[in-house]
Amino acid sequence: MTPTKTKRKAKSGSTKWNPNIVVFACNWCSYAGADTAGVSRIQHEPHFRMIRVMCSGRIQPGFVLKAFERGADGVLVSGCHIGDCHYIFGNERALEQFEKTKNMVRLLGLEEGRLRLEWISAAEGARFAEVINDFTAQVRKLGPSPLNTGNGER
């Protein structure tokens, strides 16, 4: 099923290629930051999909690698700022896991720019939007992931 095209055509949609970005977010900071962007109506790029977990410490290499395996053009891992973790040190653990993931992604031959880690607080709605716009532009520049076969085949 394809989306209905009854509404007006997006200005940019027809010319630009739109990436498929997966964002892993923690409940307390980065997911809340995205909500804050919403409350403040801060418009940003729509080509990402959020997966919420309680803490960035839960974001294991397997999640990120699976997203890339299935064809994600970019993956953003996000959590609370260091020192601000709802669970004290979950984000520092997330950082260690992220380093491991990054090494795997490099070995597998995906561009480093497809994977990013950002700390975003619940208050930083504007920064969330900025990060999304920036990351979307970065991934757009890299083009589709070689593993993006279009139909998410496995």
Binding site: P3, T4, G38, P46
Partner: peptide, 28 residues
């Protein structure tokens, strides 16, 4: 499924993309 704070409110000017995003989020 968050289709307000993280969708309709922040992609107001791109209803086609927003609709697609909402569908995907619902599917997820």
């Amino acid at each position: 499924v968050n289709i307000r704070d993280q969708c309709s409110w922040v992609h107001t000017g791109q209803p086609v993309e927003a609709q697609e995003k909402a569908r995907t989020l619902i599917r997820m």
